[in-house]
Structures are given as C-alpha cells and as structure tokens.
C-alpha cells in the first residue's frame, strides 16, 4: 500500500480560499442577474394589483348598494384575491431585497456620506419585515461624514441587521448605536437573540458557514460584510456573544480616508 503524502496544509487552505472566492463571485453575479430579470415583472404585477383595486372601487361605486348580492359578492371575492396577490408579491420583493445583499455594488464607488443616514435606510428595509415582533431602538450620535462606498456599507449593515433579527426567536430587541471614538466612527448592533456557542463563534466569518435552514441562510452575509469593512474601508469588525443572552457586533470605520 502506498503511503499517503502528508497534506500540504497551506496549499489546501489557499485552494479553499480560491474556491470560496469564486463561489462568492459567481453567486453575486447570479444574484444581480436574477434581480434584474425579476424586477420588471414584479413592478408590473405590483402596479396591476393597485390598478385592479382602483378598478374595483370604481366598479363598486357604479354598482351601488342596491345591486344584486351576487355581483357585490363577486367584487368581494376579487378584492380578497387581490390582497393575497399583494402579499405574495411582497414576499417575492423581500427575497429580491435579500438577494441584493449578495449582488455586488460596484457601480457607486467611494464618496462622502453620513453613516447615520445609511443606518436609517437599512433599518427601513429590515424594520418593515420584522417590526411585528422586534423592537428596533436607535441611539445615533453626532457623526462627521465619512469617506465610504454607501451601497456597500448599506449591504454590510443590512447583513448585520438581518442576522440580528434572525437570531431572535419570537419577540425581542435590536439596538443600533453610532458614535465617534477618536479617529473612528463606530456602529454597534446589539440583539437580544440566541447568542452563539464557541464552536459557531469560530466559524462565522467563513464563506458558506451557516447554522440556518436551507433557503434562510447561505452563509455569505458575514464574509461579505467582513470584506466590505476591512478590505474596502480599512475598518474593523468585532463581536461579543453570550449564549442565550444575545450578540453585539461592532463596526469601526476610519473617519479620515487613508489617502489624506
């Protein structure tokens, strides 16, 4: 029997990295394509749902209360179905939004932007989806504008907010704070969710690591967020997590760009 050669650990590691990167790139491209293709039909359906409701209003006004009950009943049936369609559509729109997280935002580039505004925008997106069971609390400090890629920072924040919301079973609270600490703008996102075991803590920044059900998590959120914060913005991302109590992620972005 041939002796198995000792695995070249570094080479293995590099290979895995390359494989993971191209997987990310492929997924990002795929996501961008899917978003583009779905956007127009969804826009059309959304509009039609609204026009159908407006038409029903007009029809009901024409019919008047003295119309045959059958006719009024039919209007009601259509109304209910349209409402279901609207909800179904909103579900799809939600999926598109989460896909957008993984589609790369290279179009916009770096510029000066206010981080508080980006926090508020991301919160608007996530908030509408989770507000029934999760209370979002903000404590936004006085931040100077920061040199950043707003689209990418928005993606990073969305990732963190969605993770925080998904970590909470039932009702809970997510607190977002921003502040200045020396040369850094600091954003912290704290959730009252499940927290993580030590084993999970070690792996969260790995590509495709996810503890979530298939279809809920792809495990791309944090690796992408990590790259956005550290590579593109020369910032840092750290976290503190207590099993059963919750998790706090902290993002730091340099206030002065490296070039200055």
């Amino acid at each position: 029997m041939e002796p198995t050669p000792a695995p070249d650990l570094e080479l293995e590691h590099l290979r895995a990295q390359v494989a993971a990167m191209s997987k990310d790139a492929i997924l990002a491209q795929l996501a961008a394509g899917v978003i583009h293709e779905i956007n127009t039909p969804i826009a059309s359906i959304f509009s039609n749902i609204d026009v159908i409701e407006r038409s029903l209003d007009a029809l009901e006004a024409q019919l008047g209360p003295a119309s045959p009950p059958k006719a009024l009943g039919l209007v009601k049936v259509i109304r209910n179905l349209v409402q279901v369609d609207r909800m179904a559509c909103q579900r799809i729109a939600g999926i598109i939004r989460s896909l957008k997280l993984h589609a790369r935002g290279e179009e916009e580039g770096m510029r000066t932007a206010g981080l508080n505004g980006l926090v508020e925008d991301s919160l608007l997106l996530v908030g509408s989806e989770y507000k029934r069971r999760i209370t979002f609390v903000t404590d936004l400090g006085d931040l100077p504008p920061v040199e950043c890629n707003p689209q990418l920072i928005g993606q990073a924040l969305l990732n963190l907010l969605v993770n925080a919301a998904q970590a909470i079973e039932g009702e809970g609270r997510v607190t977002i704070r921003t502040s200045v600490d020396g040369d850094w703008a600091v954003i912290s996102i704290a959730d009252s969710g499940s927290g993580m075991t030590d084993e999970v803590k070690e792996k969260i920044f790995r590509t495709a690591f996810s503890t979530k059900a298939l279809g809920v998590g792809t495990g791309l959120g944090l690796p992408l967020t990590y790259r956005i914060i550290t590579e593109q913005h020369h910032g840092t991302i750290t976290f503190d997590s207590q099993l059963g109590r919750g998790t706090t992620f902290e993002v730091r972005i340099p206030i002065k760009s490296k070039e200055q």
Partner: peptide
C-alpha cells in the same frame, strides 16, 4: 409589453 399594459391601464 407588460410595462406598457400596466402603465397605460393605470
């Protein structure tokens, strides 16, 4: 076509 139909209906 679908966009034309939707918007013109509105």
């Amino acid at each position: 076509e679908m966009v034309l139909t939707s918007v013109s209906a509105l």
